[in-house]
């Protein structure tokens, strides 16, 4: 893999990224011409620069996780291209795929499930090095280094321990250390703290932020949590039903959301006061069905501002201010 074509090449670039899932096959499908596919990710464009930290915000089932999996070549896109450091990810296989794996890593949502229950902590941390053929003599040093990066005690303290013997916060740091042991340039963090107790979330997030800054890692944080995104991401993308609906610097985006969906997300954030009355949510209903290929704006049936045009004309993501893009006819 050619590394670092130039400093201006984005590290990760996705163009028209689309992932469709076929519905489960049924016998009666023989009599139907075509079955509606679920558009989990629909024509997504995104770029991530070296060392940049980006948030991908959206509610459950909007395609955030699928986007992350696509960027890491864990699933193959139905359409669109992904370039990693200028090289098309789609064609990677064998040694070049291993090189890619060394540079792009994943931090999992559920630390209790992300570690093989039959592997000791030591073995789990060395496993990426074994898989990518790193020289065995260096394993212990690299594992120790990763452990110190996530502020865990040295390996000796984990001697013979299995995942179920550690707490959630420790496990999530182990999961992070496992990603860091390969010394990647890019990590996807899929809801990295949503399964953890509130009391240890800040600790894990701080570790991630420090590690990212000190190593100059690019990161994509996938989350539904506005506070998390605000805390760790410089730029944020908002996703709805497989499409990016708004993009901008995190502070700007959260202070003055432009898309009606982003505004609704902001309104939905709980306020820790019981006596305070709240405005009713501006949107109603649930996320609509992602099956089939609907015409027009995917948000129109829940949008309080929808006009006739929204029904047949799909709004494109366009620039409205420096660094800010939004997909809405009314902005």
């Amino acid at each position: 893999m050619a590394t670092g074509l130039s400093a201006t090449t984005p590290l990760v670039e996705a163009r028209g990224l689309t992932k469709r899932f076929a519905p489960p096959a049924r016998l009666t499908d023989m009599f139907r011409k075509e079955r509606p596919h679920t558009h989990a990710v629909n024509k997504v464009d995104l770029t991530i620069s070296r060392g940049e930290s980006i948030g991908l915000l959206g509610e459950s089932g909007c395609g955030k996780t699928t986007t992350g999996r696509l960027l890491l070549k864990l699933i193959e896109p139905s359409a669109g291209d992904i370039l990693f450091d200028g090289t098309a990810v789609a064609g990677l296989a064998g040694p070049s795929l291993i090189d890619f794996r060394k540079r792009a890593q994943l931090v999992f949502q559920n630390p209790f499930d992300a570690l093989n229950p039959r592997f000791t902590i030591e073995r789990a941390l060395a496993e990426p090095l074994v898989n990518t053929g790193v020289e065995r003599a260096t394993h212990r040093d690299r594992v120790e280094k990763a452990l110190s990066q996530v502020r865990l005690p040295p390996l000796a303290r984990f001697e013979g321990l299995f995942p179920h013997q550690l707490s959630g916060g420790q496990l999530q740091r182990i999961v992070l250390a496992r990603a860091l042991v390969l010394e990647p340039d890019f990590i996807v963090a899929d809801e990295p703290v949503s399964m953890l107790d509130v009391s240890v979330r800040a600790g894990v997030l701080n570790v991630m932020r420090e590690v990212r800054a000190s190593l100059g890692l690019a990161a994509l944080y996938i989350s539904h949590d506005l506070a998390l995104v605000r805390y760790v991401c410089s730029r944020t993308l908002v996703m709805y039903l497989g499409r990016i609906v708004e993009e901008g610097p995190t502070e700007d985006l959260l202070k003055s959301p432009l898309h009606p969906y982003t505004r609704a997300l902001m309104k939905a954030v709980p306020v820790p006061r019981v006596d305070q009355s709240r405005d009713p949510l501006p949107i109603i209903g649930n996320v609509s069905d992602a099956r089939g290929q609907p015409k027009g704006c995917s948000f129109r049936d829940r949008c309080p501002l929808a006009i006739a045009r929204c029904a047949d004309d799909e709004p494109a993501l366009r620039s409205v201010a420096p660094g800010r893009r939004v997909a809405c006819h009314l902005v």
Binding site: L74, R101, L106, N110, N116, P117, P128, N131
Partner: peptide, 24 residues
Amino acid sequence: AYVEAARVTGASDLRILFVHVAPN
């Protein structure tokens, strides 16, 4: 998730099958 973790860290199908899945 640990099977996906094995894949993202570069494990081959055979290694995933016999080292990560089979023992479980």
